[in-house]
Amino acid sequence: MTRGQRPAAGVARAATGTDALRSGAWDRLNGAHLYTSAAWLTAFAELGGMTPVSAVSGDGTAGAVGYDARTAGVNPRYTHAWLYEDALLAPVGSFAMLGGCSGYAGHLPHVAGAPAASRREALAAVVDEIRSPVTLLAHLTGEEAAQVVGAELLSGAPAPVLGMVTSELDLTGMREFDDYLGSLTRSSRSTVRADLRRTADAGVDVRVERLADVLEEVAPLLGSVQAHHGHDGSAAGAAGYLHLCLHGDLAAHAFAVVARTQGRAVAFALGYRWHDTVFMRVSGLDYDVAGRTAAYFATYFYTPVRLALEWGCVRVDLGGEALESKTRRGGALVPRWSLSTGASVDRARARAVTAARLADVRAVAGSAVTDGRVAAWQRLHQDLDGPARSTG
């Protein structure tokens, strides 16, 4: 369907803004994926300046969301330059950013068994509305990336790359914290027990609270982490981001875990209870005290695990970064793949970028990345790439 042509009955129609996300149909398609939920997309639209373009297929089985994105105005990890590094042969100024804009967990909503034609229809409606010759689907699981390529959901031959690796903790079948401990290796159990002793011996008080009640108290801790990573470390900037994270319907799902010593907050973590998963979003630290007392692990790992078990959740999404700490405490590694069409990408170099990132992850996560796992991820890149091409 060309732009400006009236869609036939039953054909996906693209909508700009958040009104189309609020009927409930979007979230029924989206399911357990927090970062493409109506609540998350609405918060980033209303407070983050990210206006979504969405569509649902005519048969109601598949959806898609995207953004008319400018490289200079989005999270760097959602840009071609960051993802493809020297495999990108020419700069990309604007593009259709598909599958979400944050959270490093891209997704195209659909029901189980949705026809490939319906998924193509919804995605094409969004791409046609944005009208950019360059598309980017960032941070998909390997399974979903394979679906996109295998069902040819994107027109053209997408150039793949391993963008990053995140971590999640599988709690399936577990009821109590001791079940979690029992699932770990002996070395990991020793690590966890040592953390718990350090926190107890230091007299750290750990509580679960409403983020709105502690936002101003914990914002400087988030600012400290942001400054540590070279970003804006101001308490005001951190508070602004936390306000976004509890905007609108997100507030009902958000919780804060706060660790205090002598009444002073020294660590906190923000999480969400969403369907069957606890999503951990950000942490804030007084690096000196949190390091000595293991307060970071108390707030970001162990209390969320206890909450997930109490709520009957089956996983904790631990996000990216600090992979060594996460794998030592039972986290499994989840590679996140990105696909692009229309950009000038050297596919051989993109494979080298993937190989280099795998080497980096292995250097950090150690034994959690076996030879077999590296080989499997390299094979997946080859499968996503298809026949070798010099450029895309």
Results as ranks from 00 to 15, higher is better:
D371C: 01
T303Q: 15
L250I: 08
G163V: 06
A298I: 13
L123C: 05
V364N: 09
R315I: 03
L309W: 04
T277R: 14
F177I: 14
P76S: 12
Q226N: 12
R362I: 03
H139G: 02
S187V: 13
M280E: 11
A38W: 00
S344I: 01
T341G: 04
E321S: 15
A259V: 06
V165K: 10
P52C: 04
R281M: 10
G58I: 06
V11F: 05
A332H: 14
T303A: 15
R264A: 15
M97F: 11
A124E: 14
P115E: 11
T327D: 09
L171G: 04
G284I: 09
L196P: 11
Y84S: 01
V204S: 04
R347M: 09
D68G: 00
S283F: 10
A368S: 15
T293Q: 06
R362V: 05
A125I: 06
A235T: 10
F177H: 11
R175I: 02
E310S: 14
V314D: 08
D179A: 10
E310V: 03
L215R: 15
T299I: 06
G63Y: 01
A352S: 09
A114E: 02
A81M: 02
S132M: 08
R13I: 14
V126L: 04
A254I: 01
R260Q: 08
M1S: 14
A87Y: 00
A365H: 08
D68H: 01
D213R: 04
G93A: 13
A200V: 03
A81D: 13
P133W: 13
A322V: 14
F177V: 13
D317F: 06
V126E: 03
D286L: 12
V134D: 01
A254G: 09
L171I: 02
T51K: 02
T391M: 07
D276G: 10
L41H: 03
D201T: 13
A375H: 12
N75G: 02
L41Y: 04
S23E: 07
F301I: 14
R120L: 07
F268H: 12
A290V: 08
R260H: 10
A267Y: 09
L89A: 14
D128G: 14
S57A: 15
D288M: 05
A343S: 12
R351Y: 02
E310M: 06
G342P: 10
V165N: 07
L333K: 09
A20Q: 00
L307Q: 14
